[in-house]
């Protein structure tokens, strides 16, 4: 029996304590909303009696999957990130309560308000949309990115995020190489792209909160509008353009190669709206740099996921297949870093 069902009564008691309520009951069985390789999300309807939050609430309980990848934050950190984003006016599900007591559901979890929409990239890109609807959704993405990027260090609520001592690009190159070494993977293609990324690293610009997984599959979309930015577990202090590039990278278009912004719309609409909302200008060369890095980073995350299957820790077909996206990601990164794309003056 899933931990969510098994611990349901304890969960209701936890909510009653957190919400200062006389009683909390659940309506119907919890429903698994999505089961990622990293976490589980359960939809629960609660009736709260007494206290400041009395009434019916549609909530989502988010907890780690039985095993999680190295680079993901713990649920408590994600809860803190969500709270900072919510207070900064980013469109996110309202964070409600967090629980570290593993006696309740067996794993730490947090509770957020449920929002309408779907967050499945392959479905969202296939929905029929007029050019105006596509443009509105792209502009929503730009607006949200600008709000996230208005959050900067230092921030005591986010003191678990390291402030990079090097320029973000070089910090990323170092982290990716260490990840490859830890996996024991020798990959000439990824090494080629990483060396290019080292010598072609852009000068550091603003250091801001970066979501680090801002792509259509992690954005709740309802009636062609963005209703929530989800999945904050990879967030870090970094180069804001890395988020713009992650959204535009070829690997996150869900088969709609002809629409560079996440398989939805056009770069010009994203760039113009982002520049207007953030006051920060977008240099296409910097976006391109971070698109190379997007392919490298996704390749390394894919290698880590495949390793969970290969190591025997978790036999799982989805993880196993993820290992087979690595060649095309490395291919794209290497094609983007042809010898004529290297800087003239080499150190």
């Amino acid at each position: 029996m899933p931990a969510m069902h098994e611990g349901l009564e304890r969960f209701c008691s936890f909510v009653a304590g957190s919400a200062d309520a006389a009683a909390v009951t659940h309506v119907a069985e919890p429903a698994m909303l999505s089961g990622g390789a990293i976490q589980e999300n359960w939809g629960v309807t609660l009736d709260i009696t007494g206290g400041p939050q009395a009434g019916r609430h549609e909530v989502v309980v988010r907890m780690d999957a039985p095993s999680a990848v190295a680079a993901s934050h713990g649920r408590m950190r994600e809860f803190a990130l969500l709270r900072v984003a919510f207070e900064a006016g980013v469109t996110v599900p309202e964070p409600l309560w967090a629980c570290t007591d593993e006696g309740v559901l067996g794993r730490p979890f947090f509770v957020m308000r449920r929002i309408a929409g779907i967050a499945a990239g392959h479905r969202v890109v296939r929905m029929a949309r007029t050019p105006a609807e596509a443009r509105a959704l792209v502009i929503d993405c730009a607006t949200q990115l600008a709000r996230i990027h208005a959050i900067g260090p230092p921030d005591t609520r986010l003191d678990f995020l390291d402030i990079p001592k090097e320029p973000p690009a070089l910090a990323a190159v170092g982290a990716h190489r260490r990840a490859l070494d830890a996996l024991g993977v020798m990959h000439p293609g990824l090494e080629w792209a990483l060396r290019w990324a080292e010598v072609a690293a852009p000068l550091p610009g603003d250091l801001v909160l970066c979501h680090q997984d801002f792509r259509i599959g992690n954005l709740m979309v309802d009636d062609h509008r963005l209703t929530g930015v989800l999945d904050w577990e990879f967030a870090c202090w970094g180069d804001p353009i890395s988020d713009v590039a992650w959204l535009c990278a070829h690997c996150w278009r869900f088969g709609r190669d002809d629409r560079p912004v996440g398989g939805i719309g056009e770069r010009a609409d994203l760039y113009d709206a982002y520049e207007a909302a953030s006051g920060r200008s977008i240099e296409p060369a910097r976006v391109r740099y971070w698109e190379v890095m997007a392919h490298v980073r996704w390749a390394i995350l894919a290698l880590q996921q495949a390793d969970r299957h290969l190591s025997g820790r978790e036999t799982n077909l989805e993880l196993a297949l993820t290992g087979h996206v690595v060649p095309e990601l490395a291919f794209e990164a290497v094609l983007m870093t042809r010898p004529d794309a290297w800087p003239e003056a080499r150190p």
Binding site: P260, E291, L335
Partner: peptide, 14 residues
């Protein structure tokens, strides 16, 4: 792994 991705060799839209 994914022969369809070979077509990317001729594209560089960034």
């Amino acid at each position: 792994s994914n022969p369809k991705a070979l077509a990317r060799e001729t594209v560089d839209d960034a």
